[in-house]
């Protein structure tokens, strides 16, 4: 069963006290790409001075795994949490008046280290709904040698027990979140991930926090007039780690959910929508009422 937002708010008694609104920055294709991958990376979007202030803040006093008090610092709130590019992407995916983070986790690591086991964060939910986002902020550059977060594209659609994927090792075409200082990586909470192996001496800082939806999903991101939901490419990059064409169905369903049109989603099977193909007409099986 897919919980709509009303159910999510009513059943979970979610009360968002700290919210923010801004202009969306993602267009249809970028929202669709988020559906496909389960993450997006915004490189060098935070000012270098703020990056340094963040590192200084985290280095002062006792080092904690949950330095939540940094969220009470106006400079951090404005430049990182409400960062225009990051908040614009959050706004695009979660809608207006999204809930701000109220918990900060620090994944500071002294490297070199062997890789962490693959895992999903506890309490993950799988399905087309997107009611919250997990975000990583890198106040310093993270090279491959420093053990960046490693993600499996599209894995937010693949149901697993958190501890049942620990025997996985290297994964073909996994994504290493190598990024310059000031980068922000926005992820689906259920994405499979791990800290990758590192080979140099460093202190790798990585802050993690969540944003929350407060309104029904709606296509109020940047509308691309040339985007056609009937003929859009819903397929993911090879390998998809799933049965053939399963990726296209998963992505189309999530995309329609984000548009507030999940009730219209259906797949007739065969070569019908949303499967790819070089056709001489629009696909058969397009759900009624979407355009």
């Amino acid at each position: 069963m897919v919980l709509g937002l009303s159910s999510y708010l009513r059943e979970m008694e979610v009360i968002l006290r700290k919210t923010h609104d801004c202009q969306p920055t993602l267009n249809d294709s970028e929202v669709l790409n988020f559906c496909k991958n389960g993450f997006l990376s915004l490189e060098s979007v935070v000012d270098p001075n703020i990056n340094q202030m963040t590192l200084d803040y985290l280095n002062s006093g006792s080092q904690r795994s949950e330095p939540t008090d940094i969220l009470d610092e106006d400079w951090f709130l404005d430049a990182v949490i409400k960062n225009p590019q990051a908040a614009g992407a959050i706004r695009s995916l979660l809608g207006k008046d999204f809930g701000l983070p109220i918990l900060m986790s620090s994944h500071r690591t002294q490297t070199p280290q062997s890789s962490q086991d693959w895992h999903i964060d506890g309490n993950s939910k799988f399905g087309p709904q997107l009611n919250y986002l997990q975000v990583f902020y890198l106040p310093q550059e993270c090279t491959r040698e420093m053990g960046p977060t490693e993600l499996i594209p599209g894995s937010h659609f693949m149901f697993t027990h958190r501890d049942a994927i620990n025997s996985l090792g290297s994964v073909r075409n996994s994504y290493y979140a190598v990024a310059p200082a000031g980068s922000i990586i926005i992820t689906h909470y259920a994405i499979w991930h791990r800290r990758s192996s590192s080979s140099v001496e460093s202190i790798r800082e990585n802050l993690k926090y969540n944003y929350w939806r407060s309104v029904e999903p709606n296509r109020d991101w940047l509308i691309d007039p040339d985007f056609d939901v009937n003929t859009a490419d819903y397929t993911s990059q090879h390998p998809t780690y799933r049965e053939q064409f399963r990726d296209a169905k998963d992505v189309a369903e999530m995309y329609l959910w984000l548009r507030g049109e999940h009730d219209k989603f259906r797949s007739v099977g065969g070569q019908g929508w949303p499967l790819p193909g070089t056709r001489n007409d629009i696909p058969y099986g397009i759900p009624k009422g979407i355009n």
Binding site: F126, F157, M158, F159, T160, I165, L168, W192, Y241, D250
Partner: peptide, 12 residues
């Protein structure tokens, strides 16, 4: 693990 058409279980 592959016999449920409604979702994907596990990894390959």
């Amino acid at each position: 693990l592959t016999m449920d058409e409604s979702r994907t279980y596990g990894f390959g």
